[in-house]
């Protein structure tokens, strides 16, 4: 019990320290990484625990982001500038409700979940699985991103939506706002961590892991496995949407590049390197890889892509269990872990 309290204290210090140590610029980058950790948790729920690999999760993330961005844009300009450029003179009907914050916030979850259902229900019901789902998830993300780029007047086209005034009454870039957003991101990641933890402890958690290990057997036990896969996909999309909504005020822009296939694949590698099928793995993976990416692109941008490509190969050949999965297997770590556990009980 004592050790547990110490653990929590240390963790709290680690979380709070950056607020005092880092510059505003760096803190806001760190907040972005924390948002990515939320995405990683959601991808892991679907891939690491249910065994369904989506290479198109960027679309759920971006939809959440767009919903938030539409609200923030309307706060800055009654008629967004890109609409004027495209010759649209009145606000389109589907933009109007986004003037309200509660509506926009609800949409950050409703939009991705709706798409997830549109994708998941027909695909899983017809028995699409494995690599087929993976490839189709990519194609769907491609469809949506083509649509968003094509509808310049309604979505801001390939530039996306930017030029916000601010949020919560603070202008973008305000030091207080940056700290608030950091706190918010950390709070959400902790909340989502515990939501997943709770989900996996229920009988439903046992079921989805059984789907990952032996879906056919589960169907012959009488389970409608497709319903569970749809449910996990929707949950995962909702988490991604929340992350997208947090991303926009932190970074100040949302664009179709966030739903590109490159981005969506990046989500997966965070999980793979961190440790699929572990709760902490994706968080660590997202933080570590994004940190590496930022340092690389500041010093050796040329070589980042080689390293990045190598990461994918490493994640499958060298550390298939990821950082956390591999550590868990190490004996000293396991002993420590068990000791903690028994004390806890």
């Amino acid at each position: 019990m004592k050790q547990k309290i110490i653990c929590i204290l240390v963790l709290a210090v680690i979380i709070i320290l950056p607020v005092f140590l880092l510059s505003d610029f760096r803190l806001s980058i760190l907040s972005k990484f924390v948002v990515f950790a939320i995405v990683a948790i959601s991808v892991n729920l679907l891939w690491g625990y249910t065994g369904v690999l989506s290479l198109g999760h960027g679309v759920y993330f971006a939809l959440g982001g767009y919903a938030m961005a539409m609200y923030m844009k309307l706060q800055a300009q009654p008629l967004p500038d890109f609409m004027e450029w495209s010759g649209i003179e009145t606000l389109p009907w589907f933009w109007k409700p986004f003037q309200s914050l509660p509506f926009a916030l609800a949409m950050t979850v409703i939009l991705p979940v709706t798409l997830a259902l549109l994708v998941g229900v027909p695909l899983f019901k017809s028995g699409t699985k494995g690599v087929y789902f993976t490839i189709i998830s990519q194609a769907i993300t491609l469809i949506v991103s083509i649509l968003f780029v094509g509808q310049q007047g309604f979505t801001g086209g390939s530039n996306g939506i930017t030029g916000f005034k601010g949020v919560f009454g603070y202008p973008i870039g305000d030091p207080t706002l940056i700290k608030i957003l950091y706190g918010l991101a950390v709070a959400v990641v902790i909340a989502i961590y515990f939501v997943s933890k709770f989900m996996l402890r229920t009988h439903g958690g046992v079921i989805i892991q059984a789907i990952r290990d032996r879906e056919t057997r589960l169907r012959f036990l009488g389970y409608r496995t497709d319903s569970f896969k749809i449910l996990t996909l929707a949950t995962s999309a909702a988490m991604c949407g929340v992350a997208g909504a947090l991303f926009v005020p932190i970074v100040g822009i949302i664009s179709p590049s966030l739903m590109s296939i490159l981005m969506s694949t990046e989500f997966v590698i965070w999980v793979a390197i961190g440790g699929r099928g572990t709760l902490l793995g994706p968080i660590i993976g997202a933080l570590v890889i994004n940190y590496a990416k930022t340092s690389f692109s500041e010093s050796l941008p040329e070589y980042w892509w080689y390293f990045y490509g190598f990461l994918f190969i490493a994640a499958t050949l060298i550390v298939p269990k990821g950082i956390v999965g591999t550590l868990k297997e190490k004996e000293w770590f396991q002993n420590r872990f068990n000791k903690l556990k028994t004390e806890h009980e």
Binding site: M199, H203, G204, Y223, R224, T225, F228
Partner: peptide, 9 residues
């Protein structure tokens, strides 16, 4: 899985 998804969860 005779029961609905929520029940099982």
């Amino acid at each position: 899985g005779k029961r609905n998804v929520w029940y099982l969860f």
